[in-house]
């Protein structure tokens, strides 16, 4: 008697299946083309990171760390990256980094204009907010499948899935940052005859920047988390090591891969945090 009546079944699952099938059938070439467009810079970036000598990459990252924070972070960053190298995971780490950079870049490019638009229109905010909730709370495996069906397996669906998972905080905090700019400052800027564009560029964005940066920091961290999951659809990188470790019951392999991800995460987090603080306010 505890069972829900049989005749009231909503065939939502079938509808989604049909929708995805329809998309692949009708717009297959479009997605293929989009995939190619995305793939080219992705491959270039990965090639660059793998072509560069390991010490050059370490030096560059340490330099950035030193710039935004100080010698302590620079030393820690270099030590962490060298450690990953000694574990034999350099190539995997660079592949992961590629996905994180690409996913984040895509997210930022989309998030900032969206966040600005949301901040300007209450209606738009009401519409977009539930969509962001959906993107953030939906288990990420769920959209991995349609992404893999629409795009050729590999890096592109991984970047797309990463993008979907990681973009919400950047949008939210861009919106929040602009809305939090004190009303009296905005009013003063308007009183001196600023155009809406001048108001945005000269007042709202600079004042929202710390908040926007906090959003981007979260986006990077989420992108890194997603990269592990994305290895299931052949994205490559450190996630593959973790996945293989589980699949083959090799605890050591999984641990080493996982540890490397943690090190990357800490480095990326500290550098982007440093960027927020380095900004004069």
């Amino acid at each position: 008697m505890g069972e829900f009546p049989q005749f009231v079944r909503l065939p939502l699952a079938r509808w989604v299946d049909q929708g995805v099938e329809w998309l692949t059938r009708e717009y297959g070439p479009l997605f293929d083309w989009m995939g190619q467009v995305l793939l080219v810079p992705l491959v270039q970036l990965e090639r660059l990171l793998l072509w560069l000598p390991w010490w050059a990459v370490i030096l560059a990252v340490a330099l950035v760390a030193w710039k935004v924070s100080g010698w302590k972070l620079a030393a820690g960053t270099a030590a962490g990256l060298i450690f990953i190298g000694t574990l034999g995971l350099w190539e995997h780490a660079m592949k992961t980094l590629t996905l994180v950079i690409a996913g984040t870049a895509l997210a930022v490019v989309v998030a900032i204009p969206t966040g600005i638009a949301m901040a300007r229109s209450d209606l738009l905010e009401r519409v977009i907010r539930p969509v962001l909730d959906l993107m953030q709370t939906m288990p990420s495996f769920v959209y991995l499948v349609p992404a893999a069906m629409l795009f050729p397996l590999g890096k592109v669906p991984a970047v797309m899935a990463t993008f979907i998972y990681a973009v919400p905080p950047a949008i939210r905090l861009t919106n929040l940052g602009i809305r939090q700019v004190p009303a009296d400052v905005v009013e003063a800027a308007r009183a001196f005859g600023s155009t809406p564009g001048q108001l945005l560029v000269k007042v709202q964005l600079p004042l929202a920047l710390p908040t926007i940066m906090a959003g981007i920091n979260q986006t990077v961290m989420m992108a890194l988390a997603m990269v592990v999951v994305a290895s299931m659809i052949g994205a490559g990188g450190l996630g593959t090591e973790v996945l293989n470790g589980i699949a083959r019951l090799e605890a050591g392999r999984g641990f080493v891969g996982g540890l490397s991800i943690v090190i990357l995460a800490i480095i990326i987090d500290r550098i982007s945090q440093g960027l927020i603080r380095a900004h004069p306010r």
């Binding site: 009296d184 400052v185 009013e187 003063a188 800027a189 308007r190 009183a191 001196f192 005859g193 000269k202 007042v203 004042l207 306010r281």
Partner: peptide
């Protein structure tokens, strides 16, 4: 607003 009337605010309204 640019040329004829300008304004001074109670809470100053300076750009921080």
């Amino acid at each position: 607003r640019q040329r004829t009337m300008s304004m001074v605010f109670q809470r100053f309204g300076l750009l921080p």
